[in-house]
Design a protein around this nucleic acid. Structure first.
Lengths: 183, 183
DNA sequence: CTGATCATGTAATTCGTTACATGATTCC
DNA sequence: GGAATCATGTAACGAATTACATGATCAG
């Protein structure tokens, strides 16, 4: 049974507890979104497919005029999640970075414009880093309650990642300023 | 005039000299592919569109039974490239990393399996780093001849990027081995 | 002469985003 | 009462990959 990565995002989120599609999307937006995004247009149809495949079970909340539908993992779903987590298939790893792309072509620019490319990129990574930093206290608290520590470790990895991008920008800005013509 | 990022990959490559679609694709595969990929299915149609828009000019090589078509930038194309390079529109920056995704959900695994997730990821980043390292001598040589130094600087940035991913993996593997249950 | 590479292109499909449509609830 | 948020879903669109089809040239 071939499942897309979005399916595993959903299975993984359900492994942490019963959730509605809306809740999954909200969670993704403050967690995995940093390295794996997902939209409503993927989540709702995928939940339906996963239910047909017997990997999740959806239950309409009784007496709920909103028609909320909470989903939970079936044993088969938990098994599919484990199988993916332990599989040795090559990992899909992909970076799309317009800042790097501009930097690559920056030879056609003047020195100040070259500097600006890196500065613009730095600002965006600083913003991202700060947004992640702001999540830290909340996630640390949730970790203690739930006992799940990997989301917190991943958040810290994300902060380190953004910081190392910022550091590269700062280093490069310095280099461009001091030795504008050497390799 | 709204252009996709793939259009700028093409314009940027043509700014470095006259090229065929095939040559653009080959160049992308050993350079920008690391942070911005492009396939034939994008390049050939996009070249046609750019020609219609007057940003590139394609010329069929004479007496060439292969029907090769070399493209070069028009002044308007060079201007469009510069406009994009100096624009302050937010940069499209996106990471899709299945290893991080697995790590995020790794609480359901046993300690050895958790370790394996990180090790698998490390191997892939080591491989990528080594592939980039192998390109270094060639790119350094090309830099001296062409005078374009940013492709070389970008290659070094790519090597650093992969190395910092490897370092994170090594650090995390050590942490998982010594303090398997703490945050 | 044969396989690898050069060379151009299209069609089908997949993946994912964005916008839309609808309605309930909660907070001020 | 009104705005923000909760909540589910679909449709249209766009971006990109993969597979396919075709043929020339070059190195051994």
């Amino acid at each position: 049974m071939e499942l897309g990565r979005t399916a595993y995002v959903i299975l993984g989120m359900l492994a942490l507890g019963k959730r509605t599609g809306y809740e999954i999307k909200s969670l993704v937006d403050v967690s995995t979104r940093f390295f794996w995004a997902a939209s409503y247009g993927q989540i709702y149809p995928e939940l339906k497919r996963l239910e047909e495949a017997g990997l999740v079970r959806g239950e309409l909340e009784e007496d709920d005029p909103r028609g909320r539908k909470g989903y939970e993992l079936t044993p088969a779903g938990a098994e599919a999640l484990r199988a993916w987590l332990t599989s040795s298939e090559p990992l899909h790893i992909e970076l799309r970075h317009e800042g790097f792309l501009k930097f690559f072509f920056a030879d056609v620019l003047d020195p100040e414009e070259q500097h600006e490319v890196v500065a613009q990129m730095r600002v965006q990574h600083e913003t991202k880093r700060d947004r992640l930093l702001a999540l830290e206290p909340g996630v640390r608290g949730a970790t203690e309650k739930s006992g799940n520590r990997f989301p917190y470790l991943m958040l810290k990895a994300g902060i380190d990642y953004e910081q190392s991008m910022v550091d590269w920008c700062l280093r490069t800005e310095r280099e461009l300023a001091t030795r504008p013509l050497e390799v």
